[in-house]
Structures are given as structure tokens and as C-alpha cells.
């Protein structure tokens, strides 16, 4: 589905991604683990075209997308859920969803506001509320729902559990499992290992802009020295 190889990126003259490679298969949930500043968000932004990749290939659904504009990449079926939520605070819940709306994708059940409200019941109760007057957890759900309105085949979820109360994190984990059941592929970035292992099939560890380890969640749980070295838990 998504295959990244040799991806490099710079901020000014600082090398922030160096030869990053990772894969996400159809219907798979892969987690990108690493500390703050390790390059997780930048990897996602580079895949999405929000940070121009300096080198490397990004193949998505059979086509090369590296160097394309974010809107073109989104139109090919790649959804992006940013770390800081970034909902449109001046727009209502329904209007936020409208901004994300794109035509249905062949082979996937099209998302409608009704179906999204079934997935995130608390959003259904506040359809006309401006995004600025929602709690952090509700905003996080809205930003995922907004991206789903584009009927993506794969979504990039940047730290969905950051700053959320433990009960809300649990609900978020349920929602991610439900999306996986729908057949959606997901690339997730996380620092919270508990959360990552609850929802993912495979893990990739990034540190100082380079991939250090890749394998299944079961392997990661068995590899104490890897967790200690890179995740310091």
C-alpha cells in the first residue's frame, strides 16, 4: 500500500530525516515509535508532502508521490491527521467535516457524517458546535473524522493519544481497531508504548531521523534491549 525508501529531509541545514524506509501493507496498522524530536512527525509530513523530501521514494497505491503537492497526495487517498489537531475552530462540526469531504473510493464504504457519528458518538451530539468550543478529546475525534470524510485508503495518524486523558485514550484505541476492521491501512506515530501495542500489527523505531529497528509487535515485546536502547522504558 505505502512503501517509503531512502527518504531524507532537511530543516534549513539540519538533517532531520536520513534514509528512512518503511512499509504499510493493505489493512495493516504500523506504528512509528520514537522520542520527541526523533523524526516521527517529520516522516509523516514528508510522506504527505508538507515537508519537501530532499531525496527518496514514496510509493503509494502503485504510484510515486514524492515531490507532489499535499492536495494531490490527499486526492490519491492518503489521509493525514496532524499531531496538534488543527481543527477549524471557527467552523461547526458539520462544516469541519464538509472541508474534508471527497468523492467515494472504489472498494471502500463511503464515509458520511452519520457513519462517523456512529463511530464517535460524542460528535453526533454537537453537530453545530464551533470547533473552538470542544474539549481536547472531542477535537482529536473530529480531526480523525474530518480526514475520514475524504474516504482515504490509508491514514497517517500523528500521536493520537498525546495529551488525552486515559479514558479518552481507551476510546481512541477502540476507534482505531474499528477502522482497521473496515479495511483501512494506518500508519501511526506514538510515544506511548502501551497504546501502540494495543492497536498495531508492526512497529518501526526511529531515532535521530534514522530507522533503527523494524518488526512485529510480538518481537518488540520480546526484544528488551531494543526497547531499553531506543524507547527507554
Amino acid at each position: 500500500m505505502l512503501s517509503v525508501s531512502g527518504l531524507s529531509a532537511y530543516y534549513g541545514r539540519a538533517h532531520i530525516l536520513d534514509d528512512v524506509a518503511l512499509d504499510v501493507g493493505p489493512g495493516e496498522v504500523v506504528v512509528l515509535l520514537g522520542r520527541n524530536g526523533a523524526g516521527k512527525s517529520t516522516t509523516m509530513k514528508a510522506i504527505m508532502g508538507l515537508v519537501p523530501p530532499a531525496a527518496g521514494r514514496v510509493r503509494f497505491d502503485g504510484a510515486e508521490i514524492a515531490g507532489r503537492e499535499p492536495f494531490e497526495i490527499a486526492r490519491r487517498g492518503l489521509g493525514y491527521v496532524p499531531e496538534e489537531r488543527r481543527i477549524f475552530t471557527g467552523l461547526s462540526v458539520l462544516e469541519n467535516l464538509e472541508v474534508g469531504r471527497r468523492p467515494p473510493t472504489a472498494g471502500l464504504r463511503p464515509w458520511t457524517p452519520e457513519r462517523l457519528f456512529a463511530l464517535f458518538p460524542s460528535l453526533g451530539a454537537m453537530q453545530d458546535r464551533p470547533g473552538g468550543r470542544m474539549s481536547g478529546g472531542e477535537q482529536q475525534m473530529l480531526t480523525i473524522a474530518r480526514t475520514l470524510m475524504g474516504n482515504p485508503k490509508l491514514i497517517l495518524l500523528d500521536e493520537p493519544s498525546e495529551g488525552l486523558a486515559p479514558v479518552v485514550v481507551e476510546r481512541m484505541a477502540e476507534a482505531i481497531r474499528a477502522l482497521k476492521a473496515e479495511g483501512l491501512s494506518i500508519l501511526l506515530s506514538e510515544q506511548n508504548l502501551h497504546f501502540a501495542q494495543a492497536v498495531s500489527d508492526r512497529a518501526t523505531i526511529i531515532e535521530k531521523g534514522r530507522i533503527r529497528w523494524s518488526g512485529s509487535i510480538a518481537d518488540l515485546l520480546a526484544a528488551d534491549e531494543v526497547r531499553e536502547q531506543y524507547l527507554s522504558v
Partner: peptide, 13 residues
């Protein structure tokens, strides 16, 4: 636990 911590399964609590 009900309003905040939850079961603790995914957060370490």
C-alpha cells in the same frame, strides 16, 4: 477510574 483513569490497559495507569 470511571471518569479519568479507565481500565489502565493502554496508558500504564
Amino acid at each position: 477510574r470511571e471518569v479519568y483513569l479507565g481500565s489502565g490497559a493502554v496508558t500504564g495507569a
